[in-house]
Amino acid sequence: MSHADLTLSAWSSLSDDAAARTAAAIARSTGTRLTSVGPHAYAGRSGRVAFFDRDGASFALVPGGTAQLGHDPDRFVPDARLRADFAQASTEWALTEPLDRFLAEVTSPPRRVSLPARLVAVRSVEADALLPADDDDDDDSEGEDGPEDGDEDDGHAWLMGGLDRLGLRPPTPDEWEYACGAGATTLFRWGDGYPEGLPYGTVPLIQEPNLFGLFIGDDPYRAEFTADPAVLCGGDGGAALCGGYGSFLSWIVLATAYRERELAETVHDGGLIGETPVRPVAPIP
């Protein structure tokens, strides 16, 4: 069996010795260096993580298998605080009502998907870091080798090409969502509610690594590219937080299945591709 077929349940059920051997085999097949394997907990859930080094960048094992993704309004029960925050935001900003309809508009639909196991960067990187070394210091290189402002297809192709040169690829939207939620079917990767205040500064829930050991969906400003040029995940570019839209609209952009419908167009049209992060994926053969 290829290690690309390693499921979360199979990975979790391995003994410690078998997990270490499996991780070592994955390191050999991907040309990475295994740095650690061990238990890890997040938001009341426990699991096992494996970390790898690839040219100085840290990657974590994200097992695959069949997973439930998207926001399911039929199972969601908002707490009193979230309902109150939504009511206030709806009054101030004329949001679609009721709450379940609004959430359906701003999240991906519920679905079952099958995904391969893969190594995923623990932290996202700026797209500019994917420029070839001989272009990095050339202020005019973007006009020749980089994306043209307002050209979504060319800009996204430039980003994909930068990853491909490194033997990497971006996550698909499904892969990003699964990597963020790590099997959780709640609105956020930690549950269905959110803390007091705003998602900025020292907030343990969003600043701690998730169950797969990833720092992901931890900053509403850092929406990440995916393999789909029209889908960015993990934030809204800071629009709600910077705009003072209040707790509900600032937190909801960190929901695992959140999709900002106009963000990709804004990024491409504004020539911000190089400043927007992407989370590299190293396929497991």
Results as ranks from 00 to 15, higher is better:
167 G>N: 08
102 F>D: 12
265 E>R: 12
212 F>S: 10
228 D>W: 08
8 L>V: 10
85 D>G: 00
82 L>H: 01
113 V>G: 01
52 F>H: 10
101 R>A: 15
134 D>P: 00
215 F>I: 13
218 D>P: 01
17 D>W: 12
274 G>Q: 11
48 R>A: 07
158 W>K: 14
21 R>D: 13
108 S>P: 00
277 P>G: 12
262 E>C: 03
65 G>K: 02
43 A>S: 10
131 L>G: 05
275 E>V: 03
261 R>A: 15
84 A>C: 02
252 I>G: 02
275 E>C: 07
219 D>G: 07
180 C>A: 15
198 L>P: 04
29 S>V: 12
189 R>T: 05
74 D>K: 09
179 A>S: 15
243 G>Q: 03
132 P>I: 00
191 G>R: 01
268 H>Y: 14
247 S>F: 00
140 D>L: 13
23 A>I: 04
160 M>E: 15
18 A>R: 08
133 A>K: 12
87 A>R: 14
197 G>V: 10
264 A>K: 07
78 P>Q: 00
54 R>A: 12
254 L>A: 08
110 P>R: 09
74 D>F: 06
196 E>S: 13
131 L>S: 14
168 L>W: 05
232 L>C: 10
126 E>N: 13
167 G>T: 12
266 T>A: 14
221 Y>H: 13
23 A>V: 05
237 G>M: 05
84 A>K: 12
141 S>Q: 11
120 V>Y: 03
21 R>P: 00
46 S>R: 15
31 G>F: 02
258 Y>C: 05
138 D>S: 03
125 V>M: 15
223 A>Y: 10
136 D>A: 13
250 S>C: 13
141 S>M: 06
99 L>I: 11
259 R>Y: 08
105 E>V: 02
134 D>H: 13
240 A>S: 15
206 I>S: 02
152 E>Y: 01
161 G>V: 12
218 D>T: 06
257 A>Y: 07
133 A>F: 07
94 A>T: 13
240 A>P: 00
232 L>P: 03
253 V>M: 05
167 G>F: 13
165 R>Q: 05
241 L>D: 04
49 V>K: 05
91 T>D: 11
151 D>P: 01
169 R>F: 01
183 G>K: 06
114 S>P: 00
111 R>K: 15
161 G>A: 12
200 Y>K: 11
265 E>M: 04
184 A>D: 09
212 F>V: 11
273 I>E: 05
272 L>V: 01
277 P>C: 13
238 G>C: 05
33 R>D: 08
17 D>E: 15
123 R>T: 12
72 D>Y: 09
132 P>F: 00
158 W>A: 15
14 L>T: 07
255 A>N: 04
266 T>N: 12
184 A>V: 01
225 F>W: 14
149 D>C: 08
101 R>N: 01
177 E>N: 11
82 L>Y: 00
136 D>V: 11
13 S>C: 03
12 S>F: 02
183 G>Y: 03
152 E>W: 06
80 A>P: 00
15 S>G: 15
255 A>R: 03
254 L>V: 08
204 P>W: 10
104 A>T: 14
115 L>E: 01
271 G>H: 06
71 H>V: 03
14 L>I: 05
154 D>Y: 05
233 C>H: 09
267 V>A: 06
124 S>E: 14
252 I>R: 06
233 C>W: 01
254 L>S: 06
31 G>C: 08
56 G>T: 03
